[in-house]
Every structure is written in structure tokens, then in C-alpha cells.
Design a protein around this nucleic acid. Sequence first.
DNA 1: ATGGTCGGCAACCGA
Length: 271
Amino acid sequence: MRLTLTTWNINSVRLRIELVAKFIKAARPDVLCLQETKCPDDAFPLKRFKRLGYEHVALNGQKGYHGVAIVSKLPFDTTDIRTFCDRPDSRHISVALGERASLAAPIVLHNFYVPAGGDIPDPSVNPKFEHKLQFLDEMRDCAPLHPNGDDRHILVGDLNVAPHEHDVWSHRQMLKIVSHTPVETEKLLAVQTCGRWYDVARERIPLSEKVYTWWSYRAADWAAADRGRRLDHIWVSEALRGTVRDFRITRDARGWERPSDHVPVTAVFDV
DNA sequence: ATGGTCGGCAACCGA
């Protein structure tokens, strides 16, 4: 069975529901993971997704900030929400796809929205950066999050860290910019290593090649400047590593009318 | 070297 999975920081699902519909009609993912829905669960545009063929929805939203959702053509066996740093923020939701989705072996899917971390990369003066570092440490130490043995697990989301040199437009100029400081990139890679995760983008695209999924709203001409960062990720466990058939970043979406600053990132699996 | 733009929601906060 072919499974197409997309992750997208939509920056308000209600404001951009027509862009989501446009993407869905073109890409037809089986499962779509959204971040920054900025929408309480009772205001999520459920009916629109159902009309688009996505009957199964797992929500962890809150008013005004953050918020994650998984919308799917396939039914879930279970849904789970975790909290981090003892805060009520809506930054995680996971589902299991299994018997009800006619899968021979279950797949557990985690959808994350890691804190952005503010502007100053010093935890002693910037509580938002301190929170981000603590969040990454908790992800690393969260054993139930990480795959064991033959587990088929996927972790996606806006992880708000561009870990490698060519995940940013200028490694040298970004070293003191939140999202690419050494303390963050080391902590994100520690989550990856401790959890025995594989980064699908970098399994497919050499480390020497620039790859971005986000471009700032502040650029006069985002495409001409092309000062992007790779903040959105798809990680898989060892058991799924060999099942990846395609990987794409829908860069065009950054040029759509009233876009999100992030674009959809998609992986296709033979599961 | 600095400031540049968004969205939510109604003055700024978070990104």
C-alpha cells in the first residue's frame, strides 16, 4: 500500500483553508499534519476537510496560538496528546494507523510544533529560548516517543531548527540566529540520534545541497533573496527507512496568494 | 547595522 504524508505549518488553518484545499486537490496526501492551526478545536473547519475526503481528524488546538492537527483519509486506531515543559501549549498530537486503516503492521505518527524560541539565543536572558532548549531535551528523553526494534514510527512537524550547514542560506551568518545556533542544532540532532530516527530529506538529498521549507515574511522578494531555512522535517524509524519512494517540498506554495511562511513537505511510502 | 511582515485579536504577543 502506498502512503502519502504531508507536513505543513499553515499559520492559521481558518485563514488559509482555501490554500489547504488547493494543495490537497493537487497532491492528494493520505494524511496531512498541520501546525500553527491557531484555532480552538470547536472552530476547526471539520466540514471542509470532510468534503475534501478527509473524514478522520485528530485535533489539539488552542485559542490564538500554536495548535496541531492530523487530517486523514485513513481511520486512526488511537490518538494521543503529550505535553512538554509542564505547559498547556498545543504542540503535539500523535495517531496510530493500523487495523482500521488495513495496515498489516501499525504505523505511529507524531506531529510536533517545537517552540520558535524568540530572538535572543541566550537562555539566561530569553525565557522563550530556555523553553525551546528544555522542550528539545524533553523530546530527547521521552522514551515512549522513540521507536524500538521493528517499530514503524514517523515523526513530522515544524521543529523550528535547521540542523545542518546547508539547511540555511548562510551557515556563517546564521550561527547566532535562533533556529541555527550550535546549542539548538546539537539538541535537535541528539533527539534524532537518541531516538534512532532517520531524516528523510537528508536520506534523499545530499548534505551539500541547500534545502529550505521556510522563507521569512519580512523579505521584500522571498524568491529572489532565497534566504530560506529548513525548519520542517519528516523523520522515520529504521523499519520505514527503506520504504520511502518519494520526497518533495512544494516551494511553489510560498508564492501563492496570502501564503504561509512555511511550505508543504511530503513523503511517499510503500508500507 | 538595522529593520523589515505576518496572524490573532483587539494592545501587543508570538513567530
